[in-house]
């Protein structure tokens, strides 16, 4: 073995792109099949958990006093599970995890923009709602869910805790 590492020495003669020096995917068949099977099961299990949470939210909404905080926590959990699914699809199915780090960064770093993007626009929508509820009484009366009206009309359970 020579002391100098030559990444192009393993290239197959049929390769059309000689500057691309190695193939990531020539792991043995059994290991590959195992990885795909594992990821498939993982994605399916996560989806089933998501569906279970979706149905849990449904039953909470059907109940007498929906617990807004619990619903919010369930929704947050579903968001995290979805991100986990996205990670597995991109890194295993799309093989991004096997690429050169610089290449991964050119994809991942621009996507960081989403952090600002989501927070800014959702906060903007929320602020618009608050302003309209404050200054546009017609909007508030015509769009606020009925259980809020009822709570305002009936004097006995004057406590808060209605859904937002």
């Amino acid at each position: 073995m020579s002391t100098h590492f030559d990444p192009t020495k393993h290239i197959s003669s049929s390769a059309a792109y000689p500057e691309v020096s190695f193939h990531h995917h020539d792991t043995d068949d059994a290991a590959f099949k195992k990885k795909v099977r594992k990821t498939t099961i993982l994605l399916s299990v996560i989806t089933i958990i998501e569906l279970a949470i979706g149905l849990a939210i449904y039953t909470i909404h059907k109940g007498e006093n929906p617990n807004a905080l619990l619903v919010l926590m369930f929704k947050g959990a579903v968001c995290i599970l979805t991100l986990a699914k996205a990670y597995y699809i991109v890194s295993v199915f799309m093989h991004l995890g096997d690429e050169i780090r610089n290449m991964i960064m050119t994809i991942v770093v621009p996507l960081m923009l989403f952090i600002w993007f989501i927070i800014a626009f959702v906060a903007d929508g929320n602020s618009y709602k608050n302003l309209r509820n404050k200054y546009d009484k017609h909007f508030q009366e015509s769009t606020m869910p009925a259980d809020h009206h009822k709570k305002a009309e009936e004097p006995k359970p004057a406590d808060a805790g209605g859904k937002q």
Binding site: H61, L111, I118, F121, T143
Partner: peptide, 29 residues
């Protein structure tokens, strides 16, 4: 695909923005 992700992301975030601006949103269930 990265640029397409931004297109879809913009659509979904716009949806989220409108949804957060409403007092009521339909229950998907």
């Amino acid at each position: 695909l990265m640029s397409d992700a931004f297109t879809f992301g913009a659509f979904l975030i716009s949806y989220g923005s409108i949804r957060f601006s409403q007092n009521f949103w339909p229950d998907p269930n």
